[in-house]
Design a protein around this nucleic acid. Structure first.
Lengths: 239, 239
DNA sequence: TCCCGATTCAAACAGTCGTTTCAAACGGTC
DNA sequence: GACCGTTTGAAACGACTGTTTGAATCGGGA
């Protein structure tokens, strides 16, 4: 259209490699990994099938790159939050730990701009992935921070054995994943309107509701646990 | 071993159709639907590929039969529990509703005997399924009871708008699914020892912990919600 | 202009998928 | 024993999958 200047419309600012990762995040999140063919993916990225093998070696290589890129920011932020909490005199509460875990996840939507929801859904989707190979790639990225959260949670919830702590952490991770993947939207599931018309309604209210739910659940499970074990102990002592 | 009578060893008591459904439950739950080929499935059922098309028409037909068979018992039991709760004078509490929803799910393990864990994991897996076709089949089976639970939950949690109720229900369903699918078992995910050596430890303690978590989460989210809206209302009124 | 590495492209490869086909085997009934 | 509909079996079909190949294209230095 415009005839003389050099960049009237973005022209093609992102490289092929970046476009591939973008399309992979979106399509993997929408249709799953197995459900996304390289042909559909490369077509969406306006390039050729061979570009995947040239830039990433294989479909798995592309997946690994996507996971690493999307998870690094979350992991870094979670580590930073943990450092911050642990630098204070008293050990962090369960509520503070939940917040420090959830907010970096939900923050993805804000960070990644227009396709933030796609990124969030992609990560949410990874967690339920059946394929052990994918699980391994994903676990490699998460394990480091996971250990720190488990010990911190165990310290914040005394009277809860290791399995109980793991249950709490697992539920937190699962609920965050559920929230991010946008699952259960009853009917109009695969594609949803990305634009949220009303202010920060999604960014704040939904997140706070999620944090409140997780925190309340963890505390309730912890007190129920200790109550049960106390009752059993009393029963043992009474005979 | 025994030589004279008519049924010493099961001989081959289950029909081909039943063996196909059994294998489908197990393999779909372990590797996902897309990840399970008809060849692997029919081999596990000690029959031929064509048997699937003969008995069920297609792989989707088999899936539909599996979902219907496994979900019917859960749905019936949930309906019965709801009838029971709604027959009482006062409306049921959120805690009672959670219990009436979760226990039929976890009860699957006990009902289906040896491969109970497989059935539970299969149902848990269905919920996170990306493929819209599968989601539709699954939704057809669940929608009926879902509506009743939503209205009952809304009545038990006044001051929570429809979206809040849906969030509570969704979280409950997701946590139950998470619990049943056995996901997040850190490392040894795809196959786990099915035998639980110590008494009813799994059957009771795990279930109670899950119910406590969900109930606590729902109540916490509800109170936080009303607190937030009350605060906003106060802010609106103050200027 | 020539050349070179980097990148893109169309085409073909081997393998697996779900489905179909048709003949063989089975189990009662006349 | 002959017949029947029902069920099983081996083999092939077409349509996909991820991967590989080799030639075409591009953008800068010599």
């Amino acid at each position: 259209m415009t005839a003389h200047d050099d960049q009237p419309v973005p022209r093609e600012t992102r490289t092929t490699r970046e476009r591939l990762i973008d399309s992979a995040v979106r399509l993997f999140g929408q249709r799953g990994i197995e459900g996304t063919s390289l042909r559909a993916l490369t077509e969406a990225a306006r390039t050729n099938i061979a570009a995947v093998n040239y830039h990433f070696g294989s479909k798995d290589g592309l997946l690994r790159a996507v996971i690493e890129q999307t998870m690094q920011a979350v992991n870094d932020e979670r580590r930073r939050r943990l450092d911050e909490l642990e630098s204070e005199p008293q050990p962090p509460s369960a509520a503070a730990l939940v917040r420090a875990f959830v907010e970096p996840g939900t923050g993805l939507v804000a960070e990644h701009g227009p396709n933030g929801p796609d990124v969030a859904r992609f990560i949410g989707r990874m967690i339920g992935e059946p394929d052990p190979k994918v699980r391994q790639i994903f676990a490699d990225q998460v394990d480091a921070v996971e250990g720190r959260y488990l010990t911190a949670l165990g310290r914040a919830l005394p009277g809860l054995d290791e399995e109980g702590v793991r249950f709490a952490y697992t539920s937190m991770l699962g609920l965050l994943s559920l929230h991010q993947s946008g699952a259960f939207a009853t009917v109009e599931w695969p594609q949803r309107q990305t634009s949220r018309p009303e202010g920060d309604r999604s960014g704040t209210a939904d997140r706070e509701r999620l944090i409140a739910f997780i925190t309340g659940g963890i505390l309730a499970a912890a007190t129920a646990e200790t109550a049960t074990s106390a009752r059993e102990e009393a029963r043992r002592a009474s005979r």
